[in-house]
Amino acid sequence: MVDLNIKDETSRLKAVVLGTATLSGPAPTPEEAYDPKSLEHILAGTYPKEADLIRQMEGFAAVLAKHDVRVFRPEIIKDCNQIFSRDIAFVIDDKLVEANILPDRDREFEAIIHVIDHLEDSQILVPPEVVHVEGGDVMPWGEYLFVGTYTGADYSDYITARTNGAAVEFLQEAFPKRKVKAFELRKSNTNPRKNALHLDCCFQPVGRDMAILHRESFLDQADYHWLRDFFGAENVFEITTEEVYHMFSNIFSISPEVVVSDRSFTRLNDWMRSRGITVEEIEYQEVGKQGGLLRCSTLPLARE
């Protein structure tokens, strides 16, 4: 049993659901791809092998255990990709919001029922059908809820558009003590260098007052400038389009002082260390071929 408590992105982690790659099945067809990076690797014949995905996820699990984090895993569904647990639900304060995800991913939420079946009904929020929202687009931070959105008239044309304007209204109503701040993200179904699948693919807070940020992922440059000013330019690590492609912003905080990052992110990791952060480096680029990385693989349940 876990008492839900998520106030922000970086407080000391106590409990988390980490996805699983076990029995995730064969590579999907191009028509089955959820995002342009997966599509790129399917077409190139470089889509990751299950054994490599399992090995890299177990490396992540080992780091979490090293830091005394209680780690839960989904029940395994054969031939189902269950790596990205952030997509299926997210916690804000003491409430768990069930994401309105792509219809053929409903089974993934059912696979974590054993983790949350002790919760009161009032703690589980199920958005109405008109609300589209995924956890990668939602970040509690201080008095704010940062939310990545796409509200263009062509929303339905983008399989990469996962959180809509109705979600912003829903979250503001569900969490009236928070200020919901929405950011319009750039979307592409076919070009992974021009697509911000979620907010955490182009922005993430680190430590107590710092952030990783990519300018071109924001459709409205006023949104980028707002975040840069909010954290202060001296506290922002600006990443390039190529670094976005490799998912530099999708690291994961165990605490303000400890971050899990991919070992290939040399420039970022050096910067974090220069700011007093302990960087736990692991290999995670095979997972990254599917359009998500470390934050995407986790559903934090409780932080101190």
Rank of each mutant, 00 (worst) to 15 (best):
C201F: 03
C202D: 06
F203Q: 09
F203K: 05
P205L: 06
P205G: 02
G207C: 00
G207E: 04
D209N: 15
A211W: 07
L213T: 08
H214C: 12
R215Q: 12
R215F: 09
E216H: 07
S217A: 10
F218L: 06
F218G: 05
L219Y: 13
Q221S: 07
A222L: 15
D223L: 09
Y224S: 10
Y224K: 03
H225D: 15
H225Q: 15
W226L: 06
W226M: 03
W226I: 02
L227K: 00
R228T: 11
R228C: 02
G232Y: 15
A233F: 12
A233W: 11
A233D: 10
A233C: 11
E234N: 13
E234W: 05
N235L: 10
V236P: 02
V236M: 07
F237E: 00
F237W: 05
I239N: 00
I239H: 00
E242L: 15
H246A: 14
H246N: 12
F248K: 06
I251R: 06
F252K: 04
S253L: 03
S253E: 05
S253W: 08
S253H: 06
I254K: 06
I254P: 01
S255Q: 12
E257Q: 01
V259I: 01
V260E: 02
S261D: 06
S261A: 15
R263V: 08
S264P: 07
S264G: 10
S264L: 10
S264D: 08
S264V: 10
F265P: 06
T266F: 10
R267Q: 13
L268Q: 03
L268A: 04
L268R: 02
N269T: 07
W271P: 03
M272R: 02
M272K: 01
R273G: 01
S274H: 09
S274L: 12
R275L: 10
R275D: 08
R275A: 13
R275W: 03
G276N: 10
